[in-house]
Design a protein around this nucleic acid. Structure first.
Lengths: 211, 211
DNA sequence: ACCTGAACACCGTTCAAGT
DNA sequence: ACCTGAACACCGTTCAAGT
């Protein structure tokens, strides 16, 4: 990386140093085209125009490639949630609701990606950067609930169990959507984002202090 | 099957007519021993003492075998929930809570089985008996919510969106448990069944009519 | 009717070898 | 330092053939 970078060097991206990124991109393409079962190391290598053994220079094994793909997904999803929350800087409860809706919309738009993020081949373990992003999302949620408490929108006490219930509710909805398991009568009546907002409203009523 | 069946015929179970059941049992053993990725058609055939091609007499493909395994799981889980609910015949809200706790306990005890039930290889489609059990569980839940409404424990109105929120909440918790994604601070403080009951209490407060 | 043996096209992974 | 080619042990699936 040169010190001055006007007129970016235009170095060819394939076969010259960033095979790693090319493999991640190829895996994402396979994922969106064929679903989680269609992602193979050999297939990604083929799509990147490289031999079947080449990926092992950049990833310890298939799980490491999938973890990189999953990490990408977590980053994108977190960014979508943050953008949505920023629209309500002065109303933490509304910000929380918007965040949940944005997460669920992301999952509805990228179901295979979400499946892979939590799938058996990735599974937290051994991938510290993955666990780090999951941890950041969790502490962010606890903080958001605490903000609601300070604003008087949620009853006082340990925010952790309250945040956990929210987490379960949103994650459950997201998983059902990714797995196409929404009961037909429900799917016919409501969009994913609407379901998320409605769920959040129900739970926030339960979390609100008695008035 | 003879008309009179005193002193049951004692027909050897393997290699004589119920290879199908033997294969399902073998697949369940593989599942519990090696996790969802360790289940292979060839492996199940080996474990049942039969050639690699034999399963195709009984299952159209691997997905059909996995669907049979998943169906077994749905039946066991539904039975556990029903047993728990029967303990509170006169308090529908408490029965609902006990049912949720029993479901979550089942998932905590059989995480791989739950993963497979919702995994990408099974995926509702093409397996009508699977969709039937899922549908039965859903209508049962809607009915339970309606009972709570009649008992005045849940606010009036369409029970469907309320039942759906409960469904998301329990399913989200179950999925997090099966995937070992409970935040460490939460896991350290509460058992799975306790988390289920706590979540249900929070949401039932939200669903209760203002008093 | 039910099962076997051999085959095909795919995997993930390893290892010597190339440049 | 980075990639290739060939190999090994595994898959899911098919198909002729056995009894």
């Amino acid at each position: 990386m040169p010190a001055t970078r006007r007129r970016a060097p235009r170095r060819r991206t394939y076969h010259h140093g960033n095979l790693r990124a090319a493999l991640v991109a190829a895996a994402v393409e396979l994922l969106e085209a064929e679903g989680p079962l269609g992602v193979s190391l050999r297939g990604a290598a083929r799509r990147a125009g490289v031999s079947q053994a080449a990926p092992y220079r950049h990833f310890r094994d298939k799980g490491a490639l999938l973890a990189a793909v999953a990490e990408q997904g977590f980053r994108d999803m977190a960014a979508a949630g943050a953008r949505a929350a920023e629209q309500y800087p002065d109303d933490p409860a509304r910000a929380l609701r918007a965040m949940a809706a944005a997460w669920v919309r992301f999952v509805a738009d990228h179901p295979s990606h979400y499946r892979l993020m939590l799938g058996p081949s990735v599974r937290g373990r051994d991938h510290p950067s993955l666990r780090a992003s999951a941890g950041a999302a969790w502490t962010g949620l606890v903080g958001a609930v605490a903000s609601c408490q300070r604003a008087g929108r949620v009853k006082a006490g340990d925010p952790m169990p309250l945040a956990f219930a929210l987490w379960c509710l949103v994650h459950g909805l997201a998983t059902l959507i990714a797995d196409e398991q929404i009961p037909p009568a429900v799917r016919a009546a409501f969009s994913p984002a609407l379901l998320a907002e409605h769920n959040m409203d129900l739970l926030l009523e339960g979390l609100s202090r008695r008035s």
